[in-house]
Design a protein around this nucleic acid. Structure first.
Lengths: 273, 273
DNA sequence: ATGCCTTACGTTATACGTAATTATT
DNA sequence: AATAATTACGTATAACGTAAGGCAT
């Protein structure tokens, strides 16, 4: 029967060009590698190399075998990855979220309810459902509901955007603003916005953003400057950026996002209220 | 590293339900199988079975592993099949043809030009190009030309259909006939028509066919009866069915098919004139 | 008692490394 | 000389079968 190890060796030889180089990369002696290839050839009943006295070269059968070996190894490696992900899911709860906001509430909540489990979170706009199915995450925070066999989904918090303006700013007295009212202004913004990035890209092109990728630097700038920035109903609870500024709600409908928690049915306990 | 043999064992256990039954099917002792599964579990770092004192049952991780194992084994098995096909192509020329006619000329021709090679032919209407790419056949006889990278293609014979009628038959004096002229008549026909079957299905529904699946029986019937049957420019050279009958060409345009020979470029010698 | 899984033990096969061999550059 | 592959040999690991043990039906 075919052996995955032999296929792995074969592909490395194909990449390195010589058995010596491949053996080194595989932390293996040349003789061992040479014999493994002889065994592979024997098990296939085909010679895979044109052999000179001190060089080998893949022949046509060898090239064909390499192509197929890569396919086999790729599927096998996916299997190993999936099993690893599953193993991980036994001891850690991983939350994939399309936005940072919901995590500020969800993370401590899950952490408190499942004290034995490690908690891990990441931000990603797309394909969270795939991650869920592959056990890459156990909870997905989405911006839309899902109705799919094997999955459970429930509405979670809504997040609504406000702009924090200096108290003396001409717009600070308004009870609400549209994004179009902000034409030409300069704002501070923190980089990792998740799904909110879409709104920035599509409806805030007329706003000049100073983007900060570092959270500490962002907070320092907020405190030290009078520049407007965004807040939401979720951020207000966790950040103290609002001290010298007035929050004015954004009235565009896209400025409110309803989030949904989604999990495999076997993990329903993670998303139940 | 994962071992294909272990994955194979695992899937058989999944199918048989118990290790004993699986061991029997695998021609293996139960203890050997039991230890192999322990090694597989160790290499994954996961237990795959719920173990009672005298029963095992796949757990969730086990079911996941089985699903992936099947995928891996399927790809591996395809690799083995492809390598077998390639090996075969070194000693035998296999011709896949969409109709029997071209083979009557091509087979002896190839046989004479490549005397060291075994020759094998089969009839198949579709997917001959796939077969070519997979080395299942080395020559494909198609009813249409192909222009594809890595393949070479050239026109081969055309085959045109005639009807063999008893000399005294009222239509036997015509110089040509349309299929529509044959409304209601009864004909003998040999079963394995390849691509010609399409013409039968689409434009000869008004003809009553007596189908023979056995070549000898067909020939006997031809000689013993006066029933009309088909011939082509290709059959006439190889069959003696025409003695008591007159050949009248079929004039419908679909009654002539131009065939094309197609092969991988490395096998161009097989299709060159 | 029978069936099913596991552990124990001895045998065989295979993979490995080191060392020696051969041929090429 | 140096490089690259193969062959030879001894050792360790793993697979196997047989035999024995434990627990359920």
């Amino acid at each position: 029967m075919l052996e995955l190890q032999h296929l792995e060796y074969l592909t490395v030889i194909a990449e390195e060009g010589t058995m010596s180089a491949a053996a080194e990369r595989l932390h293996l002696s040349q003789p061992a590698l040479s014999r493994s290839m002889q065994r592979l050839e024997a098990s296939l009943g085909l010679s895979l190399f044109d052999r000179g006295k001190n060089r080998v070269e893949l022949n046509e059968a060898g090239l064909l075998a390499v192509a197929h070996a890569r396919a086999v190894l790729s599927i096998a490696s996916e299997m190993e990855q999936r099993m690893e992900d599953y193993k991980r899911s036994l001891t850690t709860i991983t939350i994939g979220s399309c936005a940072p906001g919901p995590l500020w509430q969800l993370t401590p909540d899950i952490s408190a309810r499942f004290p034995g489990m490690t908690l891990s979170t990441y931000l990603k706009e797309n394909d969270l459902l795939d991650d869920l199915k592959k056990d890459i995450c156990q909870i997905a925070v989405l911006d839309h509901p899902v109705d799919e066999a094997g999955l459970i989904c429930r509405p979670y918090v809504a997040e609504s955007l406000s702009i924090l303006l200096p108290k003396h700013h001409p717009l600070a007295s308004k009870s609400g603003l549209y994004l179009s009212d902000l034409d030409g202004i300069t704002m501070l913004v923190y980089a990792h916005l998740g799904i909110w990035q879409k709104l920035h890209d599509e409806k805030m092109q007329q706003i000049h953003f100073i983007v900060q990728h570092d959270r500490a630097a962002f907070n320092d700038l907020i405190s030290a400057s009078q520049l407007p920035c965004f807040s939401t109903n979720l951020t207000i609870q966790f950040s103290n950026a609002a001290e010298n500024r007035t929050a004015v709600p954004i009235l565009d409908p896209e400025a409110e996002i309803r989030f949904y928690l989604c999990a495999k049915k076997k993990n329903r306990k993670y998303v139940e209220a």
